[in-house]
Design a protein around this nucleic acid. Structure first.
Lengths: 202, 202
DNA sequence: TGTACATCAGTGAACGCGCGTTCACTGATGTAC
DNA sequence: TGTACATCAGTGAACGCGCGTTCACTGATGTAC
């Protein structure tokens, strides 16, 4: 049966939300059209009247996930006034380690992005740049712009890497996982606050 | 036909090598038994007289990949005498970014490990610990052991994260990718050399 | 405002395909005598 | 050392299954008069 435009838009949003979650939970290959549709309360047929393909949905879901991440970061920034330590503590926490679905897409499927199609890579890349931008702005308060940029790139990559590695080892060695989180937090915090003149230039 | 024990061992090694490559190239879901066997010059039937399942092979291949990584790291260490800058330059290079197959498994499929079975996670975790150990030994020459440990954990995670993020954005924005590599190299190098007393306690 | 009907979002079954795995069979290996 | 034969690594076709995608159909929506 046909459905009102409002309801159709609602269904589209539900598919996107289900996909955002499932992609982080099961990866790009693991997340299937059938389960995404089922979680959105729809059939696979409905899926294909909303999106031309699984790849197209994945690209949009990735864009939505990273935008959501950015909103979270800005939220932390507003709460604890522009202090990078707020980012680090929230990101590299036991809570974030356990909650993949509500967490950051970079850590959830970062290493898979390079194997996806161009639209998805573009969406991820734009989101990544935005996150770096937010981080850079926070750092700019205590260091020159070019150093802030350099440190922002390292912090974002390092946070994603630290969380991803902590998750990878968490089942076999939970103590190691929290050691990774703590070491990453402390080391990156030092780079975020240091007046660092050892940087050397090209 | 039956085959000599030597030839059978050779075939097993070929399957492992093909799997190590293909897992890094296509991920755990993307790499299939058919193609792994084909690349090893064998049929799928041969696969199952060598390994009980795809998951069992994946765990062994992961173990082999990470051990290979460790050998590479030790090699760099022997070449340029125990200097961490040797690790960083080799790992965070354009060359490593382009060559996924011959590269580090942490960056190639780090974010997928958490979704695999226990044997694979255990193999990855042990390999990760070994890499941290090698890094820690190199760092111990210029800082106290506990700080070296903390820094080793951050360096290994940060290197994996930096390379993974650089690869994710490389197609859409190659300039950003090399910026990530460079910023990660420089920032981590600073942490590897700094006498860092700002470490604070837990 | 009320009626007639074209539109089209969603249904649910079916499609071909490639996946991981199984199995009857082959024939060189390597052991027993 | 030479022969007879049990073993078992590898072959290649087949299995069931779930994947992404398609399609004939449904019926509420919302437009045209």
């Amino acid at each position: 049966m046909k459905v009102s435009k409002a309801k159709s838009a609602e269904n589209r949003a539900a598919l996107l939300a289900a996909a955002s979650d499932l992609l982080k939970e099961q990866g790009f290959d693991g997340a299937g059209v059938a389960e995404i549709s089922r979680r959105a309360g729809l059939t696979q047929g409905a899926f294909y009247s909303q999106f031309p393909s699984k790849a197209a949905l994945a690209a949009e879901a990735c864009r939505a996930s990273v935008a959501g991440s950015q909103a979270f970061w800005r939220g932390v920034q507003d709460g604890a006034p522009a202090d990078v330590s707020g980012y680090l503590d929230a990101y590299l926490s036991a809570d974030h380690l356990e909650n993949v679905i509500t967490g950051c897409p970079m850590a959830a499927y970062g290493s898979e992005v390079g194997r996806q199609d161009g639209a998805l890579k573009a969406a991820f890349t734009e989101g990544f740049e935005d996150l770096v931008q937010v981080m850079q702005e926070a750092l700019s308060l205590k260091m020159p712009a070019d150093l802030a940029r350099q440190r922002a790139l390292l912090l974002v990559s390092g946070m994603a890497g630290g969380l991803a590695m902590a998750r990878a080892v968490a089942t076999s060695n939970p103590r190691l996982a929290s050691e990774i989180l703590q070491s990453t937090r402390e080391g990156l915090m030092q780079l975020a606050s240091a007046e660092g003149t050892t940087t050397g230039g090209d």
